[in-house]
Design a binder for these strands. Structure first.
Lengths: 350, 350
DNA sequence: CTCCAAGCTTGTATCGTTATAAATCCTCAC
DNA sequence: GTGAGGATTTATAACGATACAAGCTTGGAG
């Protein structure tokens, strides 16, 4: 009854289409399965066969189809970076991205940007990625002490690396900059330069690095027994205009600070602008130590002291650690704390 | 001989796994095919059925599997942004990314970053994406007059949008900033403020916007009949240090310029730094008009004139146009030229 | 001469979706 | 009552890769 005469499913020489395992199978005369196993380096396949298959594959420029692999294995070969709206400031995002890309180079992993449109870190992107298996691992920043994202990811044993630490008891992979050390060194620098009332502008309290910066700052002022101030009313997330206005206002109140520790370039510029507008010279009439995350500050005048945070290095580390985590490494071994690198503007050192 | 008794391939209630078409089919009692067709809104499926299927799908939170869709249809639902090493400067990359993400919001498209590690625009990322169908469309920048990437993409009829125009005769989708108008306005501004010898720092000659900036600049100086200079030895890609050194050197040579048109924040800061280092005041002793692509400049002192380029808007436009292109729109209708937005530092206007 | 094990290779089913072609179901006219 | 014909729905076969179980060789022992 069946008139099927077993016709080939495609043209014999497979003209035009991109090479698949089937192409290699036809060339070598092996079965598709064998080719697959051979390319994955399975020891059950004869060494000679493995080499031959590899050679043919390279010759015709075979690249496995990601969609097919993903469908079959469930692995996506994708790393997702959750990009916060605030990360637009300066080159935070791009440096991180370049670092991650570097770590992912020569691996089958691709980097997908998952934007967050919310103002505060929220769970939706994480839920979306986990539920629909959109990636094998997640990277995010602006970490909070009891971060819900970390909690959720840990609960589901989903690989991730956070930029910043938490205070949760379960260890998890992270890459962080030693903001406590940064604030400590920056404050000591101000005091060493003769400032008697250093101030600090902190990020919003919900972030872990708010506390690290505060500890480092407090450690220094306590140690040196000087007056101090945590600038109220603004944060590192405030706009330059807001910070600028706040600094000006503070100058009109009683006993203003004579030094500032700035956790970002924008806030440092805002402080400089405020003093400049009052005909005071940053570096002379007020001490400023800023965190430098880009080459931006090099040409800024007057020169101020900076301490560097290398975001590309952070990104590269996060990518590297995440790949290890996906590979099954233990979270305890995947934690990196990057040290500040001093850079003195001129001979201000004590 | 066959003892197959047609056992079900999975447990009946499909516990735990994420919902697929099959899940919906079981719930509704329809065939998988019908569910697929219903969700895609095919008119052949009864309206009542379509509604019921949609309702069930929403109820159980069904999301189509991207890998399966991609494998079956060949469409990836991915947009690839080729990120150049130079785009790390300031927030170029991140603003663009945010803009593209905004355009892709509420669509099935994801954004994948394909880094380029080469110094000059090169073809490898484009070839890789086309050959392996890694994306449905490509976005890139730093476009050249006879851009090889554009040529290759046009040849293969592969959807893309370039940031910047070419001089190729075949029309293609682009989003560009009117750099000619920017340079013209900037230069006119300098002349109106009494400068007699404006200079301009240009990007490397291979880029299209080098020529646009030059035209605009030349148009203004010719029109006003003033002396002028195209600063040699450096480009907008030069480091801040290099530009800084060059400006200083130029100050020691004969008849230095008394005004600068700067196509980027970094070069503007470098120029300011050089004059400041010679105890001259930017804005008073030298005119500077800079392109502003971020909020960075707001707090910079002394204030200088800026003209804005909105990169997030450019990214959003590129995403939007690319989706239309993928949808089959004609290239001629997918070209946008964004106008500069003036912003005066103070009452410098003529 | 048979049989077994080791070594290597292959067939089959499957991941979730959709294009294609075919099968139902209904309604209505004659 | 029967067939035409439109309206719906369904079965089947892919897309390309891989897990699993089974199948071939081959050489050597008994």
């Amino acid at each position: 009854m069946s008139g099927r005469d077993d016709l080939p499913r495609r043209d014999v020489d497979d003209a035009g289409g991109k090479p698949t395992l089937r192409t290699i199978a036809e060339i070598t005369g092996l079965a598709v399965t064998t080719v697959s196993r051979a390319l994955s380096g399975a020891p059950q396949i004869a060494l000679e066969t493995r080499q031959r298959v590899r050679q043919v594959a390279d010759h015709i420029g075979y690249m496995p189809d990601r969609a097919a692999q993903r469908l079959r294995t469930g692995r996506t070969n994708v790393i997702s970076l959750i990009l916060d709206p605030h990360e637009e400031i300066i080159n935070f995002g791009t440096s991180l991205i370049r670092g991650i890309s570097t770590a992912l180079r020569q691996t089958p992993y691709h980097l997908v940007i998952t934007p967050s449109f919310e103002d505060a870190p929220n769970l939706d992107p994480v839920r979306y990625i986990m539920r629909n298996r959109m990636a094998d691992g997640i990277i995010f920043s602006r970490t909070q002490p009891f971060d819900e994202r970390v909690r959720l990811l840990l609960e589901n044993d989903f690989p991730f690396v956070s930029h910043g630490r938490t205070e949760l008891s379960v260890p998890h992979p992270y890459v962080d900059y030693d903001n406590e050390e940064f604030a400590f060194q920056a404050t000591m620098k101000l005091i060493a330069a003769g400032r008697t009332k250093p101030a600090i502008i902190l990020p919003p309290e919900r972030f872990t690095f708010h506390h690290h910066l505060r500890y480092g700052f407090m450690k220094a002022v306590r140690m040196q027994g000087v007056d101090y101030e945590v600038l109220s009313g603004v944060s590192l997330d405030s706009s330059a205009e807001t910070i600028h206005a706040r600094i000006l206002a503070r100058l009109d109140e009683a006993s203003p600070p004579d030094g500032y520790v700035c956790g970002g370039e924008v806030s440092a510029l805002a402080v400089m602008a405020a003093y400049t507008d009052r005909a005071m010279v940053p570096g002379r009439d007020v001490g400023i130590v800023a965190k430098k995350t880009s080459t931006l500050f090099t040409p800024v005048r007057p020169r101020i002291d900076t301490i560097e945070e290398d975001l590309a290095a952070a990104g590269e580390a996060m990518g590297r650690l995440l790949l290890k985590r996906i590979g099954g490494a233990a979270a305890e071994d995947l934690q990196e704390l990057h040290r500040p690198q001093m850079e003195t503007a001129d001979a201000t050192a004590a």
